[in-house]
Structure formats: structure tokens, C-alpha cells
């Protein structure tokens, strides 16, 4: 990699899925590793079940806090359909990491429109190395439904060049002591799920 390389991670999903929490940790990890970091997301109305995206960029020097279309090295999506919405942000050889979950938008749960079918197949057609994981199932195995985001942080960490111990340090600092162990377990479980 060129030393001036800027890493672009786009995290998307639906308001209330803890996306901003995940990107906060990633931002702090990158800063701890010595990178210049910029991170952005839209707050406000997006909290009420709207589509949410969080942009994390790091490298030697970062200007814009926003990832442009075609620039994301990783698209980490917590919801199937949102992956499609943000798909054009992915770089030509970018990596998709997808939480296999559907959250129905109003037009679908009120029976006006259909939720698109065959999303995962379509994604794999365009991006064959995509990693698809059912986060709530894995979290249930680990024993706490709230660790979904950290599982995905673990998967994500395999596609970036920052060593695992930096993530561990930041997680230890930002979590309540009694939650540290289960989250580290979730993080390493995630790492083992990357292809």
C-alpha cells in the first residue's frame, strides 16, 4: 500500500442499530494507531428509523470527512436493503460485510411495496467475496444480543491494517468493566468469521 493511502469504511443501516457506536470505536482505533482520522454521520431525524450512514476515513492526512461514490474499501452494512442503497459507494475491488437482517420500511410493513427479493445473491454476483453473517444468531451464541456491532467490528478488522490489540485496548477503555470480557469474545469471534 502507498503510504498516503486513505482507508475508507462506510457503515450503513437503520437508525437505532448502533451504527454510530461502531464507527466511534473504529475512529478511535485508527487514531490510536497513529492515523489522521475523519468521521461523519448525519444525526437528527435519522434516529427515527431512517436510513443511516457513517463515514470513517483514516490515513496519513485526511481532508474530506465524506467518502465519495466508488471510494469505500469496505461497506459494512447492518441491513440487507441498505446495502443496495449504498452499494455505488463501494470501490471496484471493495469488500462487503453484511449483517443478514431485514428491517421493513413503512411502505413495506403497510403493504404498499415489496421488500426486494434475492438481495444477497445480487450482491454476491457483483462482489463475490462478500461476507454475510447473521449477527443476531452469533450474538445469541455468545450470550448477549447487544454485541452484534462488536462482532462486525471483528470481521471488519481483518480487512484493515490495524493490529487486533489496538481494537482490544480501545474496547477495554470505552466499555464498562463487566462488559469487557463478552465484547472481547465477540470481537475475536468476528475475526474468525472473516473469509
Amino acid at each position: 500500500m502507498s503510504p498516503d493511502k486513505i482507508y475508507n469504511v462506510l457503515i450503513v443501516g437503520v437508525g437505532g442499530q448502533g451504527i454510530i457506536l461502531a464507527s466511534d470505536v473504529l475512529g478511535r482505533v485508527a487514531a490510536r494507531h497513529g492515523y489522521d482520522v475523519k468521521k461523519n454521520e448525519i444525526h437528527g431525524m435519522a434516529q427515527r428509523g431512517g436510513s443511516v450512514s457513517s463515514h470513517v476515513r483514516f490515513g496519513k492526512k485526511v481532508n474530506s470527512p465524506i467518502i465519495k461514490a466508488g471510494e469505500a474499501d469496505v461497506l459494512l452494512s447492518f441491513e440487507q436493503m441498505e446495502t443496495l442503497r449504498y452499494f455505488p459507494f463501494l470501490a471496484k475491488n471493495g469488500q462487503v460485510i453484511l449483517n443478514d437482517q431485514k428491517i421493513l420500511p413503512p411502505a413495506v410493513f403497510t403493504g404498499q411495496q415489496e421488500y426486494p427479493a434475492g438481495i444477497i445473491e445480487k450482491i454476491k454476483e457483483k462482489a463475490p467475496k462478500s461476507v454475510v453473517v447473521n449477527g443476531s444468531e452469533v450474538a445469541r451464541e455468545i450470550g448477549n444480543p447487544k454485541v452484534i456491532n462488536v462482532i462486525f467490528l471483528g470481521i471488519l478488522s481483518q480487512y484493515l491494517d490495524i493490529p487486533a490489540n489496538v481494537y482490544e485496548d480501545v474496547l477495554k477503555e470505552s466499555l464498562k468493566p463487566k462488559l469487557v470480557d463478552i465484547n472481547l469474545k465477540a470481537f475475536h469471534k468476528g475475526r474468525s468469521l472473516a473469509s
Binding site: 437503520v14 437508525g15 431525524m45 435519522a46 434516529q47 427515527r48 428509523g49 431512517g50 436510513s51 436493503m81 441498505e82 443496495l84 442503497r85 420500511p105 413503512p106 411502505a107 413495506v108 411495496q113 421488500y115 426486494p116 438481495i119 445480487k122
Partner: peptide
């Protein structure tokens, strides 16, 4: 794909 909007 036809993507339904996801307004707040």
C-alpha cells in the same frame, strides 16, 4: 432493484 424509501 426497486428500493422502497426509508424515511424517518
Amino acid at each position: 432493484a426497486e428500493l422502497p424509501m426509508r424515511p424517518p
